[in-house]
Amino acid sequence: MICVLMLLWALPLLAVVSGQPNYIPDEPWVNSFRQGFNFQCPHGEALVAIRSFYSASEGSDRLWTFECQPTPAGLGEPTECWWDDINRAGMEWTSTCTNNGLVAGVQSQYFSAVLDREWQFYCCRYSRRCPYSCWKTNDIPEYHREEGELVVPTYGYFIRGAQTTFSGVLRDRQWKYILCRMTEFDCQFENF
């Protein structure tokens, strides 16, 4: 009888858990809806995957999760890291890490007045290495209010920044991430 009562007690809880958004196994969301967050990769790693889940009922906001991966040994250790420029909520934004940096973190703050977030990338520079073979992804998500996912397609490509647009009608963003390879030698360019 006790087992039956415990099962009846647990069934509503199981229904709640199964109704939650599509959580990424082993990668918990870094934020709650309408909350700020600060995510940084461990030293010597760069961002390689970004996932998000949208909810209109939760302030037209997204849950976010990020994955990092160690950079190739040929790049060496990061020589400096910094927070790069910030966007304003409700505005378009294009940001590429200055000083030939790679994206190694993200921070964001939610603003209920515009139902949008401000964004800032944490960038790390590796000696005097330079980017090449850069390209922009298609829109992520493809359509507003869908789940979004970027996984860097090949080891040796890195996220250098992004271009993002905001729909004031749909209250959601689409992203085009800037992906590049890095030279295996030092180069003369301060920023590319």
Rank of each mutant, 00 (worst) to 15 (best):
Q174Y: 03
C180E: 03
R181I: 00
I50H: 05
P42S: 12
C3W: 08
I159S: 00
S60M: 06
F33M: 06
M91T: 13
F158H: 15
F33Y: 15
V30S: 11
S52T: 13
G76F: 07
E27W: 13
A89R: 04
C187K: 09
L102E: 01
A113P: 02
N22D: 13
L8N: 11
Y157P: 00
S127K: 08
S112N: 12
S60Y: 15
Q174H: 08
E45V: 00
P25G: 03
W64A: 01
N100I: 04
R129N: 04
C180W: 02
I140T: 04
V48E: 04
P42V: 11
E92Y: 12
S18C: 10
Q40S: 14
E147M: 06
E149I: 02
E80N: 08
S57A: 12
D139Y: 15
C81H: 02
V103P: 00
H43M: 09
S167K: 10
F158L: 07
R129K: 15
Q109W: 14
Y132H: 15
P21V: 08
C97T: 06
E147W: 05
D61E: 07
R145F: 01
N138H: 10
L63M: 05
H144Y: 15
I2Q: 09
Y23Q: 14
F121K: 00
R171N: 13
Q69W: 02
K136F: 14
L47T: 05
S32L: 13
G74M: 02
V17I: 15
Q174V: 14
L115N: 13
R88T: 14
L11S: 06
S108N: 06
S127C: 01
S52L: 06
P131V: 08
G74T: 07
D26C: 03
L179F: 04
G168A: 12
R125L: 08
C180I: 06
G90R: 07
A113M: 10
L63G: 03
Q174E: 08
G76V: 05
L13Y: 06
E80V: 10
P78I: 05
W175T: 00
Q109F: 15
F192N: 13
A15P: 00
G101R: 04
G36C: 04
V106P: 01
V17Y: 13
R88Y: 14
M91K: 13
D116A: 05
I50R: 06
W135K: 09
E190Q: 08
N38Y: 02
L11C: 07
L13R: 10
Y122T: 07
S60Q: 11
A56W: 02
R62V: 06
S108P: 06
D172C: 01
G156Q: 05
T96K: 14
Q188C: 04
F121E: 03
L63R: 06
E58V: 01
T98L: 09
N38M: 05
S18H: 08
L7A: 14
F158Y: 15
W83N: 08
W93N: 05
E92S: 13
L8C: 15
C97R: 02
E149H: 14
